[in-house]
Design a protein around this nucleic acid. Structure first.
Lengths: 341, 341
DNA sequence: CGTTTTCCCGTAAACGTTTACGAGAACACA
DNA sequence: TGTGTTCTCGTAAACGTTTACGGGAAAACG
């Protein structure tokens, strides 16, 4: 159906080698024949077959994006990823690279999906999201020598892969700073369990800031829960029932914050009045919630574009003349002050 | 690096043809040799190279999902698509099919992205979202004879492709029903412009229900706007300034509803008290907004799975013995009664 | 024992590219 | 004229599969 390079060659009465060279802009082809080839390609509506190309070049020109849903994820999933994905896809498209999305149930099955992509050579590289502190996907890819980059840091692997992360540590720090400046001393921290790396980073910043202000860290004010609304709902009362009640809570996740606010409401405690609430990663939900939640917001779409660039810079096939570079970046968040603190 | 079918053949001292047949479960291979091949495949960690396979079979085993952002889309995009994508991906994965996501800026560029996928044979079929009333993507794919399915109906094409849509007409109808039953007679309808097909369907249902209740359709109570918050904010005052003020508004989009509520708030009109508000497609934002918005909710993840099935049933390579069938379905929405009406 | 059928396997072509190699022609230069 | 260089192109192999075809051996059947 579609015309091949053979059709072009036959039509022009030249060899397929010359046609290919002409199309690929190689130097050793006469300027005149190149024009004729290009014209014929347009006329016959020729496009190179990607499968043939992939086979010969050993590269598929597609990048896999793998996102691992948290256990017990909500119906609507993470709105977080759409803008990131948009940015990622946009930049990749500029390099004529396709984006393949690999999801999967949480758990072991996930690893299998990744192996399939790698072993059958369905993609040239992988972008990992939702990095865990100890992440076997990273271990696997490192060991396999397969190119990848991560959204989020991890303690797995050996720092030889590009990674882009949000500065959760600083956000935790700044959140405490802001609350202390407003007179709070009893500040709770609620973060996800599941070994998610950002939960640890957040807590580091939280602790550091408390120490700087000479406030002792009270383990009773720190709690882990499932990273969803139910988790926040379940775990928030625990810190509120601490002997010396907190006057502020920092939530390390928007869904947990919403669940937490529900629990607070049931206790008759109003965020923004009776207690200050700050959430570390802003989503549209924070804005429309009542009261609107003060939150730290990342620039997800630029981050998607940036991670694409970083990944490409690490691939020999795409790296410029300066060679392949491994880049690791941590981006700041912007505080969006609203009504909850 | 990765072992090929040749490695297996050499290792077992048999021909590659036999190896391939053994792996693909063909009948004309001895049971014993098949076992040896399978064992060797496991031992050498063999996986078939997808590029080689694609080239030979003329099929890439991947499906492209194309979503076209509306002009002026929000930072966080459509949370709508995540669960749909999840379902779509899940079902495709069961058939060992990959999902490729093709986004793109609104406008002409979009068409070009689609052509690229089709002409370079990067995918075996396409799933279209955000169908317009007149949709040149559908026209193009139909003409090109390329397999596709759509989320949402359209007036383009000739009904020879699978499509799955939400029953916007019925939702519009039921929304009016509900409001009339609660005593409303002046009911406004706010929907998106951009030729989006569902806006028309919604309005059909709205009109039909009004007629059934003997209420005259007042053009002053119907308005179009950009399908985002700003659009709702801008257009809502227009219907409110109608000589005979509406007592209820049905919004055909969640973002427009949020913008509309902002406009209402500035006019001192409180949804749920001074005016009834219903939104046609529910998102998490509706739930957390204050007041929580009554809304019609689709089951997006099942829809994703279903559309995958429908698409596959239309592909000769996947259709069962009963041949390829074109299926078109319209799914109902579930009313989630909250506090805004 | 001869013939036919069945079983199993090897051979080789094909899918559509890219590219290393070499060769012919033209040209330059001495 | 002889030698070397440059320009341009054709040839053919290679990427990793799948599969049509045919053939030899074994089994079945008379």
């Amino acid at each position: 159906m579609a015309s091949s390079i053979h059709d072009l060659a036959r039509h022009l009465n030249i060899s397929i080698g010359t046609v290919s060279r002409a199309l690929n802009g190689r130097a050793d082809v006469n300027a005149d024949t190149r024009q004729r080839v290009l014209a014929a390609a347009k006329q016959l509506n020729y496009s190179p077959n990607q499968s043939g190309r992939s086979l010969r070049q050993g590269a598929t020109r597609s990048i896999a994006f793998m996102l691992q849903p948290h256990p017990g994820d909500q119906q609507y999933g993470e709105p977080f990823f759409i803008p990131f994905l948009t940015g990622l896809q946009a930049r990749l498209a500029e390099y004529d690279l396709d984006l393949m999305v690999v999801m999967g149930e949480p758990g072991q099955y996930q690893q299998e999906r990744l192996r399939r992509v790698v072993e059958t050579r369905r993609a040239d590289a992988v972008v990992l999201a939702n990095t865990r502190r100890k992440d076997d996907r990273i271990d696997y890819l490192s060991k396999a020598g397969f190119p990848f980059a991560t959204l989020g840091r991890s303690q797995s692997g050996d720092d030889t892969y590009p990674s882009l992360d949000i500065d959760f540590e600083r956000a935790g720090d700044e959140a405490v700073d802001r609350l202390v400046a407003r007179g709070h001393r009893r500040i709770a921290a609620i973060r996800p369990s599941h070994d998610l790396n950002f939960g640890y980073l957040f807590l580091d910043g939280y602790r550091k800031a408390l120490k700087r202000h000479g406030i002792e860290v009270d383990p009773g004010l720190i709690a882990d829960g499932f990273i969803n609304e139910a988790g926040g709902y379940q775990v928030t009362p625990r810190v509120m029932l601490s002997k010396d009640r907190p006057t502020a809570i920092i939530f390390n996740n928007d869904a947990m914050a919403l669940g937490g606010c529900k629990a607070l409401a049931e206790m008759g405690i109003r965020p923004g009045h009776d207690i200050a609430v700050i959430v570390i990663v802003d989503t549209p939900l924070c804005r429309y919630f009542s009261p609107a939640l003060t939150a730290f917001r990342p620039s997800l779409e630029p981050m998607g574009r940036r991670l694409a660039e970083m990944l490409l810079a690490s691939l020999p096939a795409f790296a410029g003349p300066e060679g392949t570079r491994i880049i690791r970046e941590v981006w700041p968040l912007e505080l969006i002050a609203r009504d909850s603190d």
